[in-house]
């Protein structure tokens, strides 16, 4: 399957815009993008600056540029809590990593059923699934806590991970349903004619063709699980089980002494894994279709 040839063809047949006009458009696009990027970058720059500056300057200084630079907050922050951040990172990786696997598997299965299979009461179950999205979690928190406590799961990672393997987040099911329904129906019909089981259709056709949405689900799951603090706050009781986000929150207590320098240093550092995860998986998002051999 050639990818480049049709693209070249497009350029030739469009014909009308001169190279000069093309370049102007391109420059305008870049200027727009760079301008917008600065807006987007400002918070990170501020965060970085705050992590390098003296503590008592963080809230009083108007300038983004620190009066003096120091890596002190990073060392202080990393070892500042009783348990080092190394443990928190490991915990966060385990929870987020397992969540990605669970969500992608379980939600894609459920979505395949809703999007491609026919069964009784499908609309009813789909509506129930959507309903779980609509109730604010604040009011199910305590019954859920009681449930997990009866299961003996409090103070373990299980309440944070097991629901992901049981497709508890309807967001991802709904997301995948929308994408699966966009895939040409003839594919499964042809496969069905050839005697393919639904499982083979799911595994051999739908999953390989859905890399963009699976990558999207992986990215969101990883980042949102990484950023979540409320679940870990409620279910993890010992500091050596803490996640990075929960560790970050223990830097600040609004009523007493807080290590803001350490907070900002560790906040900046906590962005690194999710940023790298994003960079890596967005390649899948973009290349997905091309590598599966479908028409591009």
């Amino acid at each position: 399957m050639t990818i480049n040839a049709p693209a070249k063809l497009t350029v030739v047949t469009e014909g009308m815009p001169s190279p000069l006009r093309r370049r102007t458009t391109s420059i305008i696009v870049h200027v727009l993008l760079i301008g917008a990027s600065i807006l987007m970058l400002y918070p990170l720059l501020w965060l970085l600056a705050a992590s390098f500056r003296p503590e008592n300057e963080i809230f009083t200084s108007a300038s983004i540029w620190p009066s003096s630079w120091s890596l002190d907050a990073y060392f202080r922050g990393w070892n500042g809590l009783r348990t080092g951040f190394g443990t928190f990172y490991l915990n966060s990786f385990i929870i987020s990593g397992l969540s990605v696997i669970g969500n992608v598997l379980a939600c894609s299965m459920a979505a395949f059923a809703f999007a491609r299979l026919n069964f009784k009461y499908k609309n009813f179950w789909f509506a129930m699934m959507l309903m779980t999205l609509m109730l604010p979690y604040q009011v199910t928190l305590i019954p859920q806590y009681v449930l997990f406590r009866q299961l003996g799961w409090v103070n373990t990672f299980l309440p944070l991970v097991v629901p992901k393997f049981l497709a508890a987040d309807g967001f991802f099911i709904f997301l995948m349903v929308q994408f699966f329904r966009g895939l040409p129906k003839e594919l499964d019909e042809a496969a069905q004619m050839d005697g393919c089981s639904p499982w083979r259709i799911y595994w051999r056709i739908i999953i390989p063709l859905s890399m963009p949405v699976l990558a999207t689900a992986a990215i969101f799951t990883f980042i949102w699980t990484w950023d979540d603090f409320f679940g870990p706050l409620i279910y993890l009781g010992e500091m050596r089980q803490y996640t990075v986000m929960l560790g970050l929150r223990t830097f600040t207590d609004s009523t007493g002494e807080s290590d803001y320098g350490g907070l900002f240093a560790m906040s900046a550092l906590s962005l690194v894994p999710i940023f790298l995860f994003f960079l890596f998986f967005q390649r899948l998002l973009i290349e997905g279709i091309a590598t599966t051999g479908m028409k591009r």
Binding site: L141, I142, Y145, V146, R149, V154, F229, L233, I234, G237, E238, M239, R249, T250, T252, D253, S254, T255
Partner: peptide
């Protein structure tokens, strides 16, 4: 003695949840 500490804003919802959950 197992100690656990939290910021003020996180402390109260957690304590309420634990208390309500019999824990």
């Amino acid at each position: 003695i197992e100690g656990e500490f939290l910021g003020w804003a996180d402390y109260w919802p957690k304590l309420a949840t634990q208390t309500a959950g019999g824990n």
